[in-house]
Design a protein around this nucleic acid. Structure first.
Lengths: 239, 239
DNA sequence: CGCCTAGTTGAAGTGTGTCAATGTCTGTGG
DNA sequence: CCACAGACATTGACACACTTCAACTAGGCG
């Protein structure tokens, strides 16, 4: 994993707060912690996009850590309806289960490299290493905050604003954002974006078109977007 | 806290899964764990509804545990907009912070009795007791599942269906549901329900009226509802 | 008992979903 | 390397669930 420098990441007032690194688990782990985790992990390499990692309802056997690439978790309704719960990137954990079964499906959006922690050894490790466990707890708290933020986005924002918030997310991550060119590379389809933002591909396309019309972005094909007016984009996500 | 029977609640395959007790923290703690928690806790008793426990943005100093009563956490937008993130009951934890500040406000819906765990001592305790910490981790995972479920509700369901899901939630909790009378006691206002379900008080009222018209419920004043046709209510929440 | 807040009902407006048609990428095979 | 095919994205027209605004009614607490 990256950034294995030793850090005293545990600050008392940050419990159930922010351990920082923007929620990246690997950014806060010590070299010793990493060694231990690698001791129980196996590496899973998926070389292409749209590969199923696990399916909804499947018996949960492991927790996954993303080392490289991007993953989407989604819940499928009886009918065709689908809600994407999150787009996950390097440093994220996934594999949340309920009563021994995954509650969502997980599939790759890009080629990915994963660490795979079998649950029983992981639990054993966390019980022997409270400091390490606290990092997992902090990560869980981070994910909870992310989910609650998304609750606000879906509950209160218009489609236009949801899309603006979504695009802004990408600016933090230099694996999908070229800072010098101010260009975002979207790894997912309009349908994926729609299912994450709880709308339709058509509405996403319309919102994109509107943003381009307003001069805040410029489209170069559906997967590549240049940010022309960042303040306007921020305004669109805020107001 | 209730249910202090010793249980070997830690089952390997349930990590980041369900520790059970329906997410109640106190239902899985050992007598020893309880004693230790009580050692660092102070009791907070709020005798009335609509009391602010902490405000959004306030410096986070403690994590709260509900022993009795009901609490709502909510995020307030710049303008009047408000999203209620959750209605919390006995056995729940709240007080999620980011960078040392609460991300939401918390206020009482009923008189409540809380345990108040100051963050520094709590963190110290969790670091010395990995088993106890694992219960907190499991609780965090539970809350994450709850938030993700709500994401689906807000993202995919009609107002009618959202309300049906909401009412069904109450049937699990005998502090608000009289099983023999099949009567739900709603402790919150229509506005609160609306802000939780991401709609308006008017739409809630209309959905209620429709359900009564369809014969699945009967209203006795705005705060008291009898379930007449449970299967129909379940259908309304499912289909 | 009466005031005031909260809830309900009605009518009108609108954002977004739906259905349908057109346009544009992408990746595969000739 | 180019051409084709199928999937994906975009645009337009229309429908409708829900919000908004307004008036009225009913609870509940002093």
């Amino acid at each position: 994993m990256n950034g294995p420098q030793q850090r005293s990441a545990i600050l008392p007032t940050r419990l159930y707060g922010d351990a920082d690194g923007g929620g990246r688990l690997d950014a806060v782990l010590s070299a010793e912690d990493l060694r231990r985790l690698e001791g129980i992990a196996s590496v899973l390499e998926l070389p292409a996009r749209d590969r199923l990692i696990y399916d909804q309802g499947q018996a949960a056997e492991a927790l996954y850590f993303i080392q490289r690439g991007m993953v989407a978790t989604s819940v499928h309704d009886g009918d065709g309806s689908r809600q994407i719960l999150g787009f996950l990137r390097s440093g994220d954990l996934f594999g949340l289960a309920e009563q021994g079964h995954y509650i969502s499906a997980a599939r790759t959006l890009t080629p990915v490299r994963l660490f795979c922690f079998p649950l029983a050894p992981l639990q054993k490790l966390l019980l022997t290493d409270a400091r390490l466990q606290l990092h997992f707890l902090t990560k869980a708290a981070h994910d909870l905050r992310v989910a609650q933020r998304q609750l606000i986005v879906l509950g209160r924002y218009s489609v236009h604003r949801r899309l603006a918030s979504f695009l802004l997310e990408f600016l933090r991550h230099d694996d999908v954002y070229d800072v010098t060119e101010q260009c975002i590379r979207l790894p997912m389809s309009r349908a994926d974006m729609a299912d994450y933002l709880a709308t339709t591909p058509e509405s996403v396309a319309r919102a994109m078109a509107a943003m381009e019309h307003e001069g805040m972005i410029r489209r170069y094909g559906p997967k590549s977007i240049r940010v022309l007016d960042l303040p306007a984009l921020i305004r669109a996500a805020t107001v």
